[in-house]
Amino acid sequence: MLFDLKLGGDLVRRFTGSLDADAIAACFTDGLVEQFSCVFARLWLVEPDRRELRLVASSGLYTRLDGDFGRVPMGAYKVGKIALNCIPFLSNRLAQEDWVKDRAWAIENRIQGFAGLPLMVEQEAIGVLAVFSREAMAAEFLEVLQILSLSVTGAIAAALNHQQATPTEADRRALSEQISAILGQQKLSLLGTERPLTAAATDLFLKLAHRLAQLPCYYCRLVYAADTVMLESLLAVETSPANLGHQLDEFRSAAAALGGQLQTYTGPDSKMIQVGIELPYLPAAQGAAKNSADSPLTERELDVLVLLAAGMRDREIAQRLFISDRTVKFHVKNILSKLMVRTRIQAVFQATVRGWVME
């Protein structure tokens, strides 16, 4: 069990920081198949109206998302019942279970073990994880899955909140205007020419602004240099620098993930502390056309497509967008499916012809 938990920790690190729910789910099911010898793993998410579940990740024996179980009504089949009743389930006699729709399939593929777990947030399921194995599953493995499901549930819930947030006029304002609205008037100065940032960088600066608004912040400035962008502030010392540093740990790790750093400096009189985040300047993906709103692709998929059109490889795209190579491949697969093409070149051609990507 300890070894499985170690493997689970490595798996969780793959999707930590991602804000794409489908990509998190795909990364998780891929990891279960690769690291835990599961023959088949699937993850459904409950639709906002809570009438059905949508299959968002399928790894191992089957990878298609549009089959018989692509959509499952709430309460139907075992998956729908787990979502409705929120009861984890483990069986090592899958072919003998009377709820199995196709027992011949289980026998033919020698499927013996099955585990189904609800992904719980505030007493209701936001999704269901199903894992299949050709060997009997130990009770301890179900415990490992339950522990891992807590991490993936938290990551998916955060991603869904981010993705489902309805854009408002405030979201469309310049970053300096949004920060000023959070901190209050006359607390922010802007140095340099403001330029669009990646969604991850913008989100981090806004989160820091919300935290600064809770602290005795007297002054803050947003600095755009040639190769970097920084949000720094001056705080009155009402707590020890060590305690303040502990409160900002999450920002330190988030800044490091984006190639930047959290900086703190205590003044010589120990009455003021300077706190700031400096990130390498990385502009938001350029090249998307104005009529991209007509595209069936998500904003992130358009970002990937723009970089594909620029001739970048998966690793280069991953570094540019601060995501994993696996997530890039997941987005590319969705792009090909939505555009009904077979190759990346065909996808770029279709997007260019339709005006979603500028030449």
Rank of each mutant, 00 (worst) to 15 (best):
93 R>G: 02
192 G>E: 04
350 Q>D: 11
280 P>H: 06
160 L>N: 05
339 L>M: 08
279 L>H: 03
279 L>D: 04
357 V>F: 01
88 P>C: 05
125 A>H: 07
17 G>L: 09
337 S>V: 08
336 L>C: 09
315 R>V: 13
7 L>K: 15
164 Q>L: 12
228 T>N: 11
7 L>Q: 14
333 K>Q: 14
299 E>S: 11
324 S>M: 01
87 I>L: 10
125 A>N: 03
349 F>R: 15
243 N>F: 03
213 A>R: 12
257 A>Y: 01
93 R>S: 12
70 G>S: 11
72 V>E: 08
12 V>P: 01
222 L>E: 06
101 K>P: 00
255 A>D: 02
115 A>D: 06
207 K>A: 13
357 V>P: 04
316 E>L: 09
196 P>M: 01
162 H>Y: 15
201 A>G: 11
203 D>M: 03
68 D>E: 14
235 L>N: 05
45 L>C: 04
148 L>C: 02
103 R>W: 04
118 P>A: 07
319 Q>W: 00
281 Y>W: 10
134 R>P: 05
137 M>L: 15
133 S>W: 00
320 R>A: 13
90 L>D: 02
183 L>W: 01
245 G>V: 07
149 S>P: 08
226 A>G: 00
63 T>Y: 00
60 G>D: 10
319 Q>D: 14
109 N>V: 02
8 G>Q: 04
202 T>I: 00
231 L>I: 10
294 D>V: 01
239 T>M: 13
60 G>Y: 07
343 T>D: 02
215 L>V: 05
160 L>D: 08
126 I>K: 08
130 A>T: 11
37 S>L: 11
82 I>T: 14
270 S>K: 15
197 L>F: 09
290 K>D: 12
14 R>K: 13
224 Y>R: 05
321 L>C: 07
167 P>I: 12
309 A>G: 15
59 S>L: 03
54 R>A: 10
189 S>P: 00
105 W>V: 08
92 N>G: 07
273 I>Y: 02
55 L>Y: 07
141 F>Q: 11
156 I>C: 07
243 N>R: 11
259 G>V: 06
89 F>R: 05
139 A>K: 11
206 L>Y: 02
331 H>I: 02
86 C>D: 05
272 M>F: 09
342 R>P: 00
79 V>S: 01
6 K>E: 13
262 L>S: 07
40 F>H: 15
66 D>L: 04
285 A>E: 08
273 I>M: 10
128 V>S: 07
79 V>R: 01
296 P>D: 04
23 A>N: 04
103 R>V: 11
253 S>T: 15
329 K>N: 11
59 S>Q: 08
54 R>S: 12
344 R>E: 15
140 E>L: 05
258 L>G: 07
219 Y>I: 00
349 F>P: 00
243 N>A: 13
259 G>I: 08
285 A>Y: 01
104 A>I: 10
69 F>K: 03
222 L>S: 04
83 A>L: 05
351 A>I: 06
162 H>E: 08
104 A>Q: 14
283 P>G: 14
237 V>Q: 13
246 H>M: 05
355 G>S: 09
184 G>H: 07
26 A>K: 11
281 Y>G: 01
168 T>P: 02
104 A>G: 00
47 E>D: 14
90 L>G: 02
91 S>N: 09
308 L>P: 03
32 L>C: 06
